[in-house]
Each structure stands twice: as C-alpha cells, then as structure tokens.
Nucleic acid binder design. Structure first.
Lengths: 107, 107
DNA sequence: TGGTTATATAACTGTCAAGGCATGTAAATT
DNA sequence: AATTTACATGCCTTGACAGTTATATAACCA
C-alpha cells in the first residue's frame, strides 16, 4: 500500500488532497465536515496519505492538523513526463502542418 | 473501472503502457513475451486500457496491434496541474531568496 | 479438411482494501 | 472526578479485482 498510484486510486483520498490544497492545513474534524465522511474513515485515509508522504501531521494539543506535501506528487509527474512528450509532439506536428498549408484568410 | 487512476493503479498495466511507448504498437503476443505475462492476463489488461482510452486496437488479420494513445493521460496531467503550482512556487521562493542574498563569488 | 496460431472470454479462486461500528486514549471542560 | 471532545485503531463484512485454467472463435497453413 506504499505505491503512490494505488494511494491516489481512491476517490476519497483525492478529495482530501484537493481539500487540503487551499489554506494552511485542516484538522480531522474539519475534513470530515467538509467531505461528509465518517471520522474513522477520514483518519484511515489520512494515515495512508501520511505513509505515502502526501500529507504531514502536526499535533496541536487535542487536535491534529494535516497539511499537503505536494512534493510527493513529483513521482507522479516524473512518471508522466515521458508521455507528455507525445502530446507536445502532436502540437509540433500541428504547427508544422499549419506552416506548410495555405494560410487562412484573416491575418 | 472506468476511472483513470484505478486503471493506472495496476503495475502490469503501467508496464504495458511503458512498453508501448517505443515503436509503432505491438501485437498481443509480443507484449506477453516482453512482459512475461500470460496471454489471457495481457488481453484482460488491454481491454481495460482500451476502455479507458489509453490504447487503440487495430485488427491485422489474425493479430491485433495495440498502440498507445497518450492523449488519455492529459486527464492525469490536468489533475496534477494545480499541485504543480506548489513546487513551482517553491522554486520561485528559492529564486527570491537567492536574489536577496549576497551573490556568490564566481560570475 | 484438420491442425495450428492468435486472441478473447468465461468461470473460478484468492487477496486485499474500503467503510461501518465499536472501542481505546488523551486532552479539554465542567 | 465525571463528561465531553478529538482522534486513532481494531474487528468485521462486503465488494472489487488480479491471475490462472479452460474454452470459444477466427484466421492461417499443410
């Protein structure tokens, strides 16, 4: 369960990440309220996210504040990189095509 | 099982995609040989990948050639985009920091 | 025609994880 | 001290696949 892709495969976890994107972290209760999930459910997902390095936990007395750690997503970006080449390539092809074809009317 | 993240969560499927990145597609038999997976297993994964729009199937007589369709990964890129902001931000912060500190010796 | 090749699909089995409920624990409140 | 709040964790059930084996289908070959 350490695999980043597997961790991101769960919609609830992605919603948690999306929610943590704004502001400076949220405590568990705020997350359960925002996402309408049960507290144990949220806690479990947070554990998985934490073990994957996607969030950090800060203890504040009784509460625990979770913050996004977007660096962990660079692994995903790295995986995607060689594929991104392809659609950039297509844009280049399109540009070449436009260059070699009759220019359109207006400008 | 139409969810892109779920489809990509399987390592075998990612290996298939990686393998299809070079050349102009492969037939099923070539994939099974390259990845050392059973033929039914490969066929099932290819079906999932096809239904997710990640590969295309071309019938060549008896054989079926599968090609990568990297456009389908733009959805993943789009999901990642708002997170990419964050680590770009950090680079900016670093740049700002360097600007405001004593310039290094050489050049 | 009969056999072989290439691929898909069905049926079965094992594994694993998501979510529910109940409970533990520590801090806060009264 | 007793209660409440905030959170984690354990157990349990259920469902979702992954992979195997066996079989169906279609094209190719001798």
């Amino acid at each position: 369960m350490v695999d980043l892709f597997t961790v991101l495969a769960d919609p609830s976890r992605r919603r948690i990440l999306d929610t943590l994107r704004g502001g400076d972290g949220l405590i568990v209760k705020e997350l359960t309220a925002a996402l309408d999930l049960s507290q144990p459910n949220v806690s479990k997902h947070l554990r998985v996210l934490r073990e994957a390095g996607l969030v950090t936990e800060t203890v504040e007395r009784q509460r625990r504040r979770y913050r996004l750690r977007p660096d962990a997503l660079r692994e995903l970006d790295a995986w995607l990189a060689p594929y991104r080449r392809f659609w950039v390539q297509r844009l280049d092809d399109l540009a070449d095509h436009l260059d070699s074809s009759t220019p359109p009317e207006g400008t």
